[in-house]
């Protein structure tokens, strides 16, 4: 069998130090936990800031908590959106083996826009109201998940089964739905269009707290599966051949992951509207910050980054620039610019 180790020990490198693992050296470990604590501290201080800033009551009094509670709902929404976008994007990038795409391009957002536009187009301003309510929310999530699963199932099972084609079809479907929406928007009256526009910018204020009993269990289940599957995801990230060589059924993993990703994306989109570049921004930053391949360490950082970006942007826009509505636009702009810089620097898709 194998010969005894013949390599002489390198100076200062004992056998004990020869450990594998996501964070192999002391330096990377320290760095990771410093970054983690920093992000956690930022997240907590932004949440506290959002609750307490401009709160006329003294901290700790009953009145303070009453006001804080009302503001708390938007913090909960941010946490949910950050979680959905972060976990979904990181997982999606892993199974597609591509670090620059986001699940939003699979047509979720266009579908959301098309549904919203169609409701206003066919039912007028009353249509927006008709789309509110827990059943409508559930239905909207269900439609998006079913559509995504049909697309994945159909495109990944066929003879041409490959992820590139699936992405391409997703983008084309999205573009098609987008044109239909634009066409309908053209024919709306200005006041109806105004109502619609307010719905089409991703906004934390779109979220209705009555949706939470459906949204939270859904994302907990999907999130639990994706995060607990981290060790397998580390392998799937190496591509199909290596994954299969190591004894994992690549197709099953990809399909299962895409199913849960579609749930997360559908919940996030149905809750607050389109957030095209948030996921990309968060995942890219998370990989830079965590500096490891291991999903067990990337997921928490991605979630915290997402929350810090969202809450930070809200805090700054609300309390410094008094322009709360522009937050998602700002995030999209920053995310989009990051995306462009990333592509230009990397020079390829």
């Amino acid at each position: 069998m194998a010969p005894p180790r013949t390599t002489p020990k390198l100076p200062g490198k004992s056998l004990f130090n020869r450990a594998s693992g996501a964070l192999p050296t002391k330096k990377t470990r320290t760095r990771y936990w410093v970054v983690f604590s920093l992000m956690l501290a930022l997240a907590l201080s932004f949440s506290f800031g959002l609750l307490a800033w401009d709160n006329p009551m003294p901290v700790g009094s009953d009145g303070f908590w009453l006001i804080a509670q009302m503001r708390g709902s938007s913090i909960l929404t941010m946490a949910i959106v950050a979680f959905c976008q972060a976990v979904a994007t990181v997982s999606f990038q892993t199974v597609t083996n591509n670090r620059i795409i986001t699940p939003s391009i699979m047509g979720f957002e266009s579908l959301y826009i098309a549904v919203q536009t169609a409701s206003v187009f066919f039912m007028g301003a009353a249509g927006v109201v008709a789309l509110q309510g827990i059943w409508q929310f559930t239905l909207q999530v269900a439609i998006m998940v079913v559509l995504a699963c049909l697309l994945y199932g159909w495109l990944l099972s066929g003879k041409l089964g490959n992820i590139q084609i699936m992405l391409l079809v997703g983008i084309i479907l999205g573009a098609g739905l987008g044109s239909i929406s634009t066409f309908m928007q053209r024919m709306l009256s200005p006041s109806e269009f105004d109502i619609l526009t307010a719905k089409l910018f991703g906004s934390m204020n779109n979220a209705d707290m009555s949706y939470m009993p459906v949204a939270i269990p859904l994302i907990l289940i999907a999130g639990f599966f994706l995060i607990s599957n981290s060790r397998k995801m580390n392998i799937v990230a190496l591509g199909r051949d290596t994954t299969m060589n190591l004894g994992i059924n690549h197709r099953t993993e990809v399909m299962r992951t895409l199913f849960f990703v579609s749930i997360l994306m559908a919940v996030s989109t149905a809750l607050v509207g389109p957030m095209t570049f948030l996921g990309f921004l968060v995942a890219t930053l998370a990989y830079q910050l965590a500096d490891t391949y291991d999903h067990r360490f990337v997921f928490p950082i991605a979630f915290l980054t997402g929350f810090v970006v969202l809450s930070g942007a809200y805090f700054v826009m609300k309390n410094i620039f008094y322009a709360q509505g522009a937050v998602s636009i700002i995030i999209e702009a920053v995310g989009g610019i990051t995306f462009l810089i990333f592509i230009l620097r990397k020079g390829r898709l």
Partner: peptide, 23 residues
């Protein structure tokens, strides 16, 4: 073999143990 993941040599080799240790 093109990996999008950034790995050290040892981390890569460690993946070879996955069938035995499941990570």
């Amino acid at each position: 073999n093109h990996f999008v993941t950034r790995l050290t040599v040892r981390q890569l080799v460690a993946f070879g143990r996955f069938p035995h240790s499941k990570g």
